[in-house]
Design a protein around this nucleic acid. Structure first.
Length: 307
DNA sequence: AACCATCTCAACCGCTGATGG
DNA sequence: CCCATCAGCGGTTGAGATGGT
């Protein structure tokens, strides 16, 4: 956790402080006070900039600093204060005698933030996370996309379109469920996933091996109703699909309004299938522009009616 | 034991607001 | 007002520590 000793262009030392430097700084401040931080290093005989001296003193050498593990009470106080003050570390630190803003900031970023996430709380708002709602929003967008895809894939083949729509719906539900488990870190079990939930909410007829949901394996086992999935063929060099349902709030969901295509030609009726694998469908690295590119590449009809 | 991934936290960087000429 | 200087703050970095395989 120490930085490589170095010096900047002015010749002042940077990086970790040596015990000798610490002693010089402490001795000087105890004798004279810090006064002007800019002037201090020269007066004290330190080859450091004033900023570095101030930081070393306030974050480490100050005699009133309380070191060691934060108590549960301190952690709870920080969480409570953060809910009110946000990332105002100095303001939070002012309520915890002996603790520095830097120390509290580090504690927050390494422990407390994760703690809130595990409790299902948003570390920014301190309210229950809305990811699951976002997933549902994404699901709606997926369904809209499925309708769009169905409409241009083969307007003459209603059965094909409906089946494709149904397949995508099933897959979207599957990934929604999988994301929920990833978010909570829970392992699916019969107690956490009742038959009623699977049947009524997701429409899954059976889910005998629930662990597979968590592992993302055995699609055919979990989704027996997905038809001809491996046989779906996409007439394109690009055969991977984006991360349709993001588990992270940092990732913006696919936006249906971004869809745009100008070609007015009718699609080729022979292009009725998609070349698509489950691994591709679950690809994490695809960009948000996927669908736009997808539509641009494969659409041959006007989109104004579906935007 | 060796390797790799993740965590920790001191220290740095760059920005902002206060102050003074 | 404008500008320069400074202290303080929050975000970020990165080397060492730690844990897992």
């Amino acid at each position: 956790m120490m930085r490589t000793p170095s010096s900047d262009e002015s010749g002042l030392k940077k990086g970790p402080w040596s015990p000798e430097e610490d002693k010089i700084l402490v001795d000087y401040i105890q004798k004279h006070g810090h006064g002007s931080w800019r002037a201090l290093p020269k007066l004290a005989g330190l080859n450091r900039c004033g900023k570095s001296c101030r930081l070393r003193w306030t974050n480490y050498l100050r005699p009133d600093i309380k070191r060691g593990k934060f108590s549960d009470e301190e952690e709870q106080l920080i969480i409570n204060l953060h809910a009110v003050l946000g990332n105002k570390w100095a303001a939070i630190a002012s309520h915890l005698p002996g603790r520095t803003d830097n120390e509290i900031k580090n504690l927050w970023n390494t422990h407390l933030r994760k703690k809130l996430l595990q409790m299902g709380l948003d570390p920014v708002t301190h309210r229950p996370r809305t990811d699951h709602l976002n997933l549902l929003t994404n699901l709606q967008q997926i369904l809209e996309a499925a309708k769009i895809v169905s409409s241009f894939t083969n307007p003459c083949d209603i059965n094909n379109a409906l089946r494709l729509h149904s397949d995508v719906t099933q897959l979207a539900k599957f990934q929604l469920l999988q994301n929920m488990f990833q978010l909570t870190g829970a392992t699916p079990s019969p107690s956490s996933l009742t038959d009623g939930f699977l049947n009524d909410v997701l429409g899954f007829n059976q889910c005998s091996n629930l662990q597979n949901l968590h592992d993302g394996n055995s699609v055919s086992q979990i989704l027996p109703n997905v038809q001809n999935f491996e046989a779906l063929q996409l007439p394109s060099p690009s055969n991977s699909l984006p991360n349709l349902v993001s588990a992270s709030p940092e990732h913006s969901p696919v936006k249906a309004e971004n869809f745009n295509a100008n070609s007015k030609e009718c699609c080729n009726p022979s292009s009725t299938t998609f070349e698509l694998t489950w691994g591709d469908f679950m690809e994490e690295d695809a960009t948000d522009n996927y669908w736009k590119g997808f539509i641009d590449q494969h659409s041959n009809q006007t989109w104004s009616t579906v935007q």
